[in-house]
Design a protein around this nucleic acid. Sequence first.
DNA 1: GGGTTGAATTAGACGTGTCTAAACTAAATA
DNA 2: TATTTAGTTTAGACACGTCTAATTCAACCC
Lengths: 232, 232
Amino acid sequence: MLSDVMEDYLKAIYSLQMEHGPPVSTSSIAEYLGKTPPTVTSMVGKLEERGLLEREKYKGVELTTEGETVALEVLRHHRLLEAYLTEHLDYSWSEVHEEADALEHHISEEFERRVAAALGDPEVDPHGDPIPSADLTPPKSAGLSTLSDHGVGDTLVVCRVSDRDPEELEYLSEAGVTPGTTIEITDVAPFGMVTVRVVDSGREQSLPESVAQTIRVRAPDEECEDESVSTV
Amino acid sequence: MLSDVMEDYLKAIYSLQMEHGPPVSTSSIAEYLGKTPPTVTSMVGKLEERGLLEREKYKGVELTTEGETVALEVLRHHRLLEAYLTEHLDYSWSEVHEEADALEHHISEEFERRVAAALGDPEVDPHGDPIPSADLTPPKSAGLSTLSDHGVGDTLVVCRVSDRDPEELEYLSEAGVTPGTTIEITDVAPFGMVTVRVVDSGREQSLPESVAQTIRVRAPDEECEDESVSTV
DNA sequence: GGGTTGAATTAGACGTGTCTAAACTAAATA
DNA sequence: TATTTAGTTTAGACACGTCTAATTCAACCC
């Protein structure tokens, strides 16, 4: 059996692989998980022995199919939980991440099935992240652009925001920039500071580039994964 | 912070204390948790250092108020989860125990509050066990009698069944002997074998003494904790 | 090509929770 | 009272996941 800790490593490596592609470096995993590099080296050795990843010494690491499947399983749990907590237990959009992190390793297959059923097998979680399907086949990467890829005057629909930083999440939730909302870019200042107008409310909001980079958007007429109904 | 394992020990000691009173022996804890006695001795030493229990060497162990509070917190989590899974996720009466055991250590205070609210602050779980209140004051022991305390002809209402043994639970669920149902004792055979008739369905069922001892009952007119609506 | 530098790995230690084997206690028996 | 016995504790080992300090590697630059 795989420990919680091992599952966390696999999930982290999967995320890093999605962001920057393989190989994933020891130090990036260490930073992501808040561990020291030697700890990561040691753990990565164990995961390699179990066939969950491949490793080239001093280069980095890449998940095997098996490792990726485990990561997707954990991610499915995480995102189903986020969706469930939001829809059925009245959690706000930005509160769910920690709770899901704590529970994701401890739910049974049965629980997973029942939660999915209660939600009607959703395809995205409240942040707009795609929920891996029950068969754990790798989801095709949507190839969405980022808010900072666009310029003044562009009208866009928010598809996804990052769930990594609770503060950022609170800020966006506050600002009304949530998956499914339409925004228009009204200004781009030096250093990438972006000002957007939320079309429904008319409200304007400035976002630092670091945040703008984590917001995935699409053109209003494009297809996209279903946005979740965000009920903050 | 207290580890999951420590919480499990405290919960076990609490249960054993409820059943047979203090002091609780090393070997009984070991058997309850499926550990060896030396392991228990070692753990009990650590719990004593933390002020969670008192210990007399070669005699046994008794929870302090602080230890009891921790046990009640875990028990509250466990029983709220059992109730929630049964009522909102369509779990059957006998399936919930394992799931609750896995989750009880990992839910937040916030989660506890929201689950309790979603259930309307219930006082008993689906097996009829009392759910400790949010302030974690020790529940007064209900002083219910046991099915094996009664004789032929007695008509009784089931208040509580033990949730320790999934097989037994399945058996009782199958037989329709659930909290809130009225039964009549139709026969008591040698070795304590008890035959009961479920009043609603008219069905008869024989129960070995070991099982009869774990079923808590009351007279039909007595007060009792609210029975849960058992929807198997 | 040799030196510098930043990242990765090895070495060695520690805390936690578990085990088996051996020693010890205390209560019951003779 | 001496002995047996059942149960408890101590001693010592091990796996896991983590750390710090020391070493090694690879890439880059003059």
